[in-house]
Simulated assay, not measured.
Amino acid sequence: MIETEIELALITLCDGRISPLIAKPGTETPYICYRKKSESSIDVFDGPVGSSYCFQVHVFADDMKQAEAIKNQAFENLKSLRPYNIKGMQRYDKDNALFCATLEFSL
């Protein structure tokens, strides 16, 4: 399962505070949440031959510098999975009063 490979690539970051989708309330910062944004089937005349996945890795931290630094480490750790269509984003999560650096990529 591709989610397992992603989690294994990220587990050394944030003292292992890695969660699919959302973190539990009260999780110490910084932490990482990841999700499969989409899945597409690659089809040929004879039928499907594979799948393509789009994932997002969200790094939540008390300041943007820390979130960006961890996001960059996450990218380095994920390189062995051969990500492509790589995008980075930043935002401020008002609900949790945390900065978020996002890495979006396809596999």
Rank of each mutant, 00 (worst) to 15 (best):
M1Q: 11
M1W: 08
M1V: 12
M1P: 15
I2M: 14
T4M: 06
T4K: 14
T4R: 13
T4Y: 01
I6N: 04
L8E: 11
L8F: 05
L8T: 14
L8G: 03
A9C: 13
A9F: 01
L10V: 11
L10R: 03
L10P: 02
I11Y: 00
T12A: 09
C14Y: 00
D15R: 12
D15K: 13
D15G: 14
G16V: 09
G16N: 07
R17F: 00
P20I: 03
P20Y: 04
L21I: 13
I22A: 07
I22R: 13
P25F: 01
P25W: 00
T27A: 07
T27C: 06
E28C: 11
E28N: 12
T29C: 12
T29I: 15
P30C: 03
P30H: 03
P30F: 08
P30A: 06
I32K: 10
Y34V: 13
Y34K: 04
Y34R: 05
Y34N: 05
R35C: 05
K37S: 08
K37T: 07
K37R: 09
S38F: 00
E39K: 10
S41P: 10
I42L: 08
I42H: 01
D43Q: 04
V44Y: 00
F45W: 07
D46F: 06
P48E: 13
V49S: 06
S51R: 09
S51T: 08
S52A: 09
Y53D: 12
C54T: 12
F55C: 05
F55D: 05
Q56W: 02
H58L: 13
H58C: 06
F60W: 13
F60M: 01
A61N: 08
A61Q: 01
D62H: 11
D62S: 14
D63R: 12
M64N: 04
Q66S: 12
Q66R: 12
E68Q: 14
A69M: 10
A69Y: 04
I70R: 07
I70F: 00
I70V: 11
I70C: 06
K71D: 02
K71M: 09
N72I: 07
Q73M: 11
Q73E: 09
Q73P: 00
A74N: 00
A74F: 00
E76T: 05
N77W: 02
L78S: 04
K79F: 00
K79M: 13
S80G: 10
S80V: 15
L81H: 04
L81Y: 03
R82I: 08
R82G: 15
R82S: 15
P83V: 02
P83L: 07
N85E: 13
N85I: 01
I86P: 03
K87C: 06
K87W: 10
G88K: 14
G88N: 10
M89G: 03
M89I: 03
M89V: 06
Q90S: 11
R91A: 10
R91S: 14
Y92M: 10
Y92Q: 07
D93S: 07
K94H: 10
K94M: 10
A97F: 08
L98A: 04
F99T: 01
F99E: 04
C100A: 05
A101I: 08
A101T: 06
T102I: 15
L103E: 06
E104C: 10
E104Q: 14
E104L: 05
F105Q: 06
S106H: 07
L107D: 09
L107T: 15
L107K: 05
